[in-house]
Write a protein that binds this DNA or RNA. Structure first.
Lengths: 202, 202
DNA sequence: CGCACTTACTGAGCAATGCTCAATAGCGTG
DNA sequence: CACGCTATTGAGCATTGCTCAGTAAGTGCG
């Protein structure tokens, strides 16, 4: 597919090659669920032999995990709010980027969430980690302006579950043709924020 | 693995064979995510040749979809409330069975939800259908004792997302060792119910 | 310059697996 | 019992995850 411009063999540093391969994985994730992503296809796209891919990733699963982790990190990066803003504004910004992210890459995101990797425990783990990262971030935002005398574990569970709520809202909302959406993205975010406070008040 | 008690070939009706195979799929789903379920293993378990399985399910995916649909139907069946009870009691009962179901089969359920089938669109579809079934049921319960003048689509979206919230709550809660659970199952259900009303009131 | 040395890289080949198809053999029916 | 329908088999193909012995690109040292 690539094989460098002339036909010659091209030798990259280990790090560069890994990055390239993970990058290709991420790109292909856009058009197909991860478990349909064959090592052959990735290798061909990179212009290398199958063998080399196994040199870097001993197992297909290892490669998957790496790609999914990268996807998770990307989500965290994209939704990272500006820390100089007030907490509630940060939350709002974060939710807006989240909705935008889901809307932009709806199919891949569903693949990430639902299809993580065919129930593969390792990749479920990756998703759990990403979700936990978001949860922690929200908790920090809330704490910074909060009375801190609730049972922490219950609160964490609530926020975690609330994220599931928001995620579902975003997925369903973005699945509607624009004309049919009952609310704007801003209203959706407002609803989500209100929900957060209502749920914590229970 | 089976091959009927004596070694002879055994001929079942098409319907019986299909049921048997789907049943085996469901059983194996308990110990492994669906995409690791090989046609060979299923055929061996049933004591038939690979070829026969393809006679009934033209594609591995077809088989998967069938098995996942069955799993979804089972969830709906298990959580079906007694229609002779008052609506709020039905809801409560339904949530209790749901939590019990998730607790009992936590890993398979996560496989069903997260791993559905490696992001396979068909199986994501199956999950969506199941979730939609639950949503409709809850909406009916609410309607039966409700003022009916809200935008229906928004309400549906709220309930749908609330189910994601409940699901996440149940998964996280059941993942904790019993001693560490901050609430009882009953309290969890109460929290979920309160959440539903709070969210609808937004 | 040239030699040794490391390691990125290849390609042949294996085993497992999804899938096809022509042939076979249970079972019901006339 | 014979016949026909179809459930069932088993050989075989292509793909794919994975291994491994060997090749060659880059680096440093005399």
């Amino acid at each position: 597919m690539d094989k460098s411009v002339d036909g010659r063999r091209r030798r990259l540093s280990a790090e560069d090659r890994r990055k390239q391969l993970v990058g290709i994985g991420l790109m292909m994730l856009r058009t197909q669920p991860i478990h349909e992503l064959s090592i052959d296809a990735v290798a061909a796209e990179a212009g290398i032999s199958r063998g080399l891919l196994f040199h870097y990733f001993p197992t297909k699963r290892d490669f998957y995990v790496e790609v999914m982790s990268a996807a998770g990190r990307r989500l965290l990066r994209v939704t990272k709010p500006d820390p100089s803003l007030p907490a509630d504004e940060q939350l709002r910004q974060m939710l807006l980027s989240f909705v935008a992210f889901v809307t932009r890459r709806r199919d891949s995101y569903i693949s990430f969430v639902r299809g993580a990797a065919g129930g593969d425990n390792f990749v479920v783990q990756v998703y759990a980690t990403t979700r936990a990262g978001l949860t922690t971030r929200v908790l920090e935002l809330l704490d910074s302006a909060a009375e801190a005398d609730r049972p922490a574990s219950r609160d964490r569970m609530t926020v975690h579950a609330w994220l599931a709520y928001v995620e579902d809202l975003a997925i369903e909302w973005s699945g509607l043709p624009e004309a049919d959406r009952p609310t704007s993205a801003e209203q959706l975010v407002d609803q989500a924020t209100a929900a957060l406070h209502a749920l914590r008040a229970l």
